[in-house]
């Protein structure tokens, strides 16, 4: 086993940090020394393995971004439903007051007004938005 080339030399060659003169000297030796050529191939294989590792790490870090989207979607949906509920809460009393102002109280049957209010209160009570926005449930 030849020990002429140190691991640092071989590593420097594959990583590309050896200067031109040292790299040429290393190549000249490796061309004639099977043992050092095998060591150089091993260093180069390690370099390829690192490329694979980098690709793997990049790949496994991607789902994090996807998970963020998954978390964000219920938040957006929750916000939209909250706005819709707020809109309904706002419009129902206004609709009631409009109707009340337009029609004489005697002609408009009171039970219908009570029924509308009952619907609205039922709807608002059914919203179940959690604080972290990660889940939105609707109860009957």
């Amino acid at each position: 086993m030849c020990d002429l080339l140190s691991r640092e030399h071989l590593e420097g060659y594959v990583v590309g940090t050896l200067d031109e003169v040292d790299a040429a000297a290393l190549e000249a030796h490796v061309m004639e020394c099977a043992s050092c050529e095998t060591k150089l191939q091993r260093e180069a294989a390690l370099e390829l393995a690192f490329t694979r590792v980098a690709a793997h790490v990049e790949h496994t870090s991607r789902p994090t971004r996807v998970r963020r989207i998954h978390v964000a979607l219920p938040m957006v949906a929750g916000a939209a439903l909250t706005m819709a509920a707020a809109f309904l809460l706002w419009i129902v009393p206004h609709a009631d007051s409009d109707a009340a102002s337009r029609a004489p109280a005697a002609e408009e049957p009171a039970p219908q007004m009570v029924e509308s209010n009952a619907d609205a209160s039922t709807f608002t009570a059914s919203l179940d938005l959690q604080a972290d926005g990660s889940r939105l449930g609707v109860r009957d």
Binding site: Y13, V14, G16, E37, L40, Q41, A44, A45, L46, E47, L48
Partner: peptide, 9 residues
Amino acid sequence: VALLGRGLS
């Protein structure tokens, strides 16, 4: 280096 890593001389 890529070729060396694949076992070429």
